[in-house]
Design a protein around this nucleic acid. Structure first.
Lengths: 136, 136
DNA sequence: TATTGTTATACTCTATAACTATA
DNA sequence: TATAGTTATAGAGTATAACAATA
């Protein structure tokens, strides 16, 4: 039977929309577009070059140029020229950008955590393990 | 402990991004923007007015006007004037729009189903039940 | 007065194609 | 030649504010 499969896929899509809405709302409250917030969250882990960022965000490099321009103009990130390869640069968050990235990330996980908080701990860790396996 | 909660929330966010990418890719293959595809999928269930659509898509009504204009211009949907309330209209898919909505929906669920298909049936239904409860 | 939907305006986001500079 | 990133251009998506028409 494929009923179970289809049902799960649809549940994942619905869930994704719900998460998306939370992310959009939180971004807004922090005066960021969802795209800017996502960029900041990716860069919070480590600085990255344009090509690698493009790959991670599924965006054309030319689309990224403007996005990075705008967060740089706001003082949230900086293009740091690479010493070895003079074509390349690393996009690094400023202190303000890092602070905003952390705040946004925490607000998103807190809001989603509020939804999942009522689930039994065993259920939470089971579902988490399954989802981790899917996105690995 | 909050470790489990946070871990689950983060897993849900990662998963949401993965689903988002699938949705974007499929939309593209069907010559639609992700926003247009989402609109079509919502309308596939039933025609809706602008105010109700705005609520479901988390968009301002003014943003929706242009989105509906573009799908209407492409012949995928139509504004049907309401007989009772002459201010209102229902947005209804054309046959072509319905066909495209179904194709997109099926492609998305198939692609996500391919990811989840390896899971044991019991795991699938368990996770589905949990996710359904979260987005209810 | 309240509600339904649109218009006007200003940005942001995105892709394609062509480009510069460096490797 | 290939790669890193940008520019030019065009269109799509979005919000805010002001508006028209109907309830």
């Amino acid at each position: 039977m494929t009923t179970t499969e289809l049902g799960l896929a649809e549940a994942l899509v619905r869930l994704s929309h719900a998460v998306q809405h939370v992310f959009t709302d939180v971004s807004r409250e922090n005066d960021l577009t969802p795209q800017q917030a996502q960029l900041l969250c990716v860069l919070a882990a480590q600085p990255l070059g344009m090509t690698e960022l493009s790959r991670r965000l599924h965006l054309e490099k030319s689309s990224l140029t403007g996005l990075v321009d705008r967060v740089e103009r706001r003082g949230l990130a900086e293009r740091v020229r690479d010493g070895k390869d003079r074509r390349a640069c690393q996009i690094a968050l400023t202190d303000e950008g890092t602070e905003l990235a952390v705040r946004t990330h925490n607000a998103v996980t807190a809001r989603i955590g509020a939804l999942t908080g009522d689930l039994p701990a065993a259920t939470q860790s089971h579902v988490r393990a399954v989802l981790d396996a899917l996105t690995k």
